[in-house]
Amino acid sequence: MSIEVRIPAPLRKVTNGADKVNVEAGNLAAVIEALNDAYPGIKDRLCDESGALRNFVNVYINGEDIRFLDGLDTLTKSGDEISIVPAVAGGY
C-alpha cells in the first residue's frame, strides 16, 4: 500500500501524462518532495520560493482541505488519497 496522489490536468505535462502517482511519505511536505523526486519540477509548480503552497493550489487528504488540518505538516499514511485541485470560482 502507498499514498495515491491524483494529479490535475495542468500538472500532467510534468508527470508525463500520469493522472495518479503513488508515493510513500509521512507527511504532506514529504509527499511533495517524493513527487518532486519522481517528477523534477513539480514542487516549483505547487510551492512558492518560501516553500509554502501557492495561493491558488488546494490540497485535500481523503477529501479534507489541508487548511482545516495541519497544512503541509499534516501526517499521511499508507492508503491515504490526496487530491491536488486548482482553485475554482463559482457562486457570486
Partner: peptide, 11 residues
C-alpha cells in the same frame, strides 16, 4: 477551454 496556469496555478 483552460482555466489554470500550468506554472503557478494562477487563474
Amino acid at each position: 477551454p483552460e482555466h489554470v496556469c500550468e506554472f503557478c496555478f494562477g487563474p
